[in-house]
Amino acid sequence: MPGLGDLERSVMDVLWDSHEARSAYDVQNALAADSERPLAATTVLTVLSRLEKKGFVRRERVERPHRYSAVASREDHMAELMHEVLGGADDRQAVLARFVGQVSPAEAEALRKLLSAN
C-alpha cells in the first residue's frame, strides 16, 4: 500500500499530463492503467480533495461529476521551488539550509583561482 504522499504524486502526474480538467473517475482509470492494483474511487476523491485544500488542484463545480485540473503546471511548481531555494536573501537560510549560495562573477574568478591553487 503506497503512502498518501505517493498517491498525491501519482494523481498530480495524471492531472499535469492531461490538457483538460478530469473527473475523479478519469483519474481513477488513468491510475489503474499503469498499476496492477486499482484504487477505490473514495481514495481517489480523498486524495483530490486533500490536493485541493493544499492549493494544487482546482475543482470545477459546474456540472456533475465535478472535474479537477492542476492549478499550475509541473514546470511552474518546479520554478517556484527553485525560486525558494535560490532566491531570497539570507533569511532563506532559516527556512532551508543551502549548501552554498551563488557567487558574483568577480568572486567566481577568485574561487577558480583558489581551486587551481589547491
Binding site: L86, G87, G88, A89, V100, G101, V103, S104
Partner: peptide, 19 residues
C-alpha cells in the same frame, strides 16, 4: 538563473561565505 534575485540580496553575504 536567480540572477533577478541578486539585486535584492544584500551585497556579499553567501558569496563571501563560500570564499
Amino acid at each position: 538563473l536567480a540572477l533577478t534575485e541578486r539585486a535584492t540580496t544584500p551585497a556579499g553575504t553567501l558569496q563571501e561565505q563560500a570564499l
